[in-house]
């Protein structure tokens, strides 16, 4: 808290300077906070690494399929969706949809977000559709991640 007060003084001192936006100088105020956070993150990583070292299983054996095999946690939702989607749409096979939707369509949609959402407001209360869609997308990813673990 003391740091915040000090930073506020910093603003007053620099107010007379010709700046584009009101704020605190990058050095030292912004950098100080960054360094504090960096120390915390680096410390946590070393702690995690010491308590839970990276694993190493048996050497790869192409003739012995282990079970269950999990991919990295951030790809689980792709596997979940692939398992979840078992419906053919017309001539398109279920498997093709199961692969294309979470990989191609989803990333394509992410790239296009600023071009789809033309609402200029950044006020969260005036962006109800975007917020609801965002929450649905998040819940969807969480659900398919859960699905991939439970229905392995």
């Amino acid at each position: 808290m003391a740091m915040t007060n000090k930073e506020l003084h910093g603003t007053e001192e620099h107010e007379h300077e010709p700046v584009r936006i009101r704020g605190l100088p990058f050095f030292p105020h912004f950098l100080l906070r960054e360094v504090v956070v960096m120390c915390l993150v680096a410390g946590s990583l070393i702690l995690l690494a010491s308590v839970y070292p990276a694993g190493l299983l048996k050497p790869a054996d192409p003739f012995d399929t282990p079970s269950p095999i999990y991919p990295e946690w951030y790809f689980l939702y792709v596997f979940g969706f692939l398992k979840f989607w078992t419906y053919n749409i017309g001539p398109i096979e279920a498997k093709i949809i199961g692969v294309t939707v979470p990989m191609v369509l989803w990333y394509g949609l992410l790239i296009l977000v600023p071009f789809i959402d033309r609402n200029p407001s950044t006020d969260i209360r005036k962006r109800k559709i975007a917020v609801v869609l965002g929450i649905i997308a998040l819940l969807g990813i969480l659900y398919f991640t859960y699905y991939s673990i439970v229905y392995h």
Partner: peptide, 9 residues
Amino acid sequence: KHPAPEYAV
């Protein structure tokens, strides 16, 4: 001295 906005700090 490039300013960082208060809310971001």
